[in-house]
């Protein structure tokens, strides 16, 4: 069973790993590459343990390179609080 469902915008792009990552409770990172996303893979695995998460994303965003910009989730948008 999937440990969690995580939206792609909550994952961080890791330059070194060339993958989208999300914290795993073991201390390592769940990882999924752009190539995997492009072929419709929705499971991000942790290299250190048996756990995996389900990534929620729109596959069309990954089929076209032009839309790449809006996919970078690590750019945080500060939101003003009233």
């Amino acid at each position: 069973m999937s440990y969690d469902d995580v939206e792609i915008e909550d994952m961080e792009w890791n330059e070194e790993l060339q993958a989208y990552t999300y914290p795993c409770p073991c201390g390592d990172l769940f990882q999924i590459t752009k190539d995997e996303l492009r072929i419709g893979e929705e499971i991000a695995r942790c290299p250190s343990c048996s756990l995996y998460i389900t990534v929620i994303y729109n596959i069309e965003d990954f089929l076209d390179n032009k839309s790449k910009e809006k996919l970078e989730p690590s750019k945080q948008q500060p939101v003003a609080v009233a």
């Binding site: 909550d10 945080q76 948008q77 500060p78 939101v79 609080v81 009233a82």
Partner: peptide, 20 residues
């Protein structure tokens, strides 16, 4: 603050970088 963990607003907040 996406999951409400900051408790600083009744509305959903993405993030804040200064203490509230």
């Amino acid at each position: 603050g996406k999951r409400g963990q900051l408790g600083v607003s009744k509305d959903r907040i993405r993030s804040v970088s200064l203490p509230q």
